[in-house]
Design a protein around this nucleic acid. Structure first.
Lengths: 234, 234
DNA sequence: CGAGGGGTTGAGATGGATCAATTGGTGTGG
DNA sequence: CCACACCAATTGATCCATCTCAACCCCTCG
C-alpha cells in the first residue's frame, strides 16, 4: 500500500523512473514530512544525512559568509530533488520559504537504493545536469548584470518555473500577464540577486511606475507586461 | 590495443569506473584531440554534439550577455568532464585557456554507451554533484564578496585545484608558498570574478605591496603567504 | 491605541567602473 | 643590436550605481 500512487509529483520527480514494485520498495525507506515556512531541513556544513523530493511548497538553498552575508544559491519547487547523495557535506542550508511538504530519505538508504537502480540514478543525473546549467546561467546574472536586469531576470525565471509547476501560487491571466503570490520576502529577493533590500524595493517601485508590474500587497506581484520584463532581463 | 592504458588521467577521470574490456569499447568511439590556447571546442547555444574528458591543459566555460559582457562560469582541469550529455543545448562555450589535450566523444555515442554502463553514469553523477557544489560556492563570491575577497578566493581555489592535478604549472615550494604560472590573462580573471581588468590589476598590486604575493611576470604569481590569502578570502 | 516587523523613501558615502594615459615586455625588420 | 610597433597590464582621475544610514510608513496583532 504505497501512498506514492496519490503523489502529485509522481510523474515529474525522479521517482518517475521506477515501476510499481520498485516504488513501493523505495517507499518503505522514505516518509513524507511537513515543513513550516522558515523551518530548515538541512544546515550548511553538516554531514549529509538526508535527501528529499519536494512535493509541495518552495524552499531556498543558501550559504553565508562567516560575517553573516547571505547568498541564496538555489530555489526549489515541487518535483525538485534536494540534498547531497553520495557522501560529502552539504555546502548550503535548505530552508522552507513557504509551508512545504517533502518526501525524505536517509541519505544512506537512498544511496544504497540508487546504486541498485540505474534508472533512478539516470534521472537524478539528468536533473543535476539541468540544475547545473541553471546555476551557471545565474552566475552571469550575479557577475555581470545591473540591478534592473537582475530584477527582471528574477521575475521572469520565477514565472517560468511556476508556470511549469501545478499548484503554485500563480494565475495565468493572459500570455503577457501573470498574478503571482511571492514566496519571497524583499530580503530574500535581495539574497537571491546579490543586492540590498533597498535596491530591490526601489526597482519594484520603478517597475510599477513604468507600468510593467502592479503591487497590490507586499507578497503579490501582478506582471502587466511580461514581454517588457523579458526584454529588460538582458 | 587501447591507448587508454597510457592515459595520465585514466584513474581520475570518469573512465576509472570501467574495466579493460569496457574501456576499449569506449575507446573505439572516442579520439584524442589537441586544442591550442584560445581555440573553442563548444559554442554557447549550439546543440550539444560532443562531450570530452580533459587530459591536459586548462579550459574555461563561459556565457555572454547579448551586448557582449562575459562571465566565466567554470574552469576545468585535467580529468574533468566537459559537455552536456543527454540532450539539450549547451548553455556555455568551452574554450582552451592553455594548449590542451582532450578525449572527445560524439554526444550520441557517449549517451548510448553511458546508458549501458551504470558505473560510468554513477561516476559522472558524482562528478556533476561536486561541480554543482563548487558552482554554488562561487555564487556566494559573485553575489556577496568584495573585490579583495574575490581575488583572494580566486587564487586560493586555483592553487587548491592545481595542487590536486599532477602536471599543472605550479610549484609547491613550502606549505605556505606556491609558484604558479597563470593559465589566465587579467581580462579572464576579471571575467571569472565579475570585475573589470583595472580592478583586478589594482588588487594584484595591493597584494604585492602587502607582501602576500610577488609578480615576477604577467603570467606568474608567487604566493608568499597562502594563509593570509585564505584569511582574506572571507 | 501602541508596539513591532517588514517595506519604502531619502540623502549622502563609496567601491568599483569608466575613461584616459603611460609603462613594459615581446617580436619584427632594418 | 637597435628602433619601432603592438598589445597586455598598470596607473591615475573622475564618475556613478549601488550601498549605507536613517527616517518614516503601513500592516498586523495584542
Amino acid at each position: 500500500m504505497s501512498n506514492c500512487d496519490l503523489c502529485v509529483v509522481r510523474n515529474r520527480a525522479i521517482c518517475a523512473s521506477l515501476d510499481a514494485k520498485e516504488l513501493s520498495a523505495l517507499n518503505t525507506v522514505g516518509r513524507t514530512r511537513n515543513v513550516v515556512a522558515g523551518e530548515s531541513l538541512i544546515w550548511e556544513g553538516e554531514d549529509s544525512v538526508l535527501v528529499a523530493n519536494v512535493i509541495e511548497g518552495v524552499l531556498k538553498l543558501s550559504t553565508n559568509t562567516e560575517d553573516g552575508r547571505e547568498q541564496i544559491v538555489g530555489v526549489v519547487y515541487p518535483s525538485d530533488f534536494i540534498g547531497r547523495p553520495f557522501g560529502g557535506t552539504t555546502g548550503h542550508g535548505v530552508t522552507a520559504l513557504t509551508d512545504a511538504k517533502v518526501c525524505v530519505f536517509s541519505r544512506r538508504d537512498f544511496d544504497a537504493f540508487a546504486r541498485e537502480h540505474p534508472a533512478l540514478e539516470h534521472k537524478l543525473l539528468e536533473r543535476t545536469l539541468g540544475e547545473l546549467d541553471r546555476t551557471r546561467r545565474w552566475m552571469l546574472l550575479l557577475g555581470r548584470k545591473s540591478a534592473g536586469e537582475k530584477m527582471a531576470s528574477f521575475l521572469v525565471e520565477m514565472v517560468e518555473r511556476m508556470d511549469n509547476t501545478a499548484g503554485c501560487a500563480i494565475r495565468f491571466e493572459q500570455p503577457n500577464r501573470r498574478h503571482v503570490t511571492l514566496p519571497f520576502s524583499r530580503q530574500q529577493i535581495a539574497d537571491v540577486l546579490g543586492l540590498t533590500i533597498e535596491t530591490v524595493s526601489r526597482q519594484f517601485t520603478r517597475l510599477k511606475n513604468e507600468g510593467i508590474v502592479d503591487l497590490p500587497s507586499r507578497r503579490e506581484v501582478v506582471i502587466l507586461d511580461l514581454d517588457a520584463l523579458v526584454a529588460e532581463a538582458g
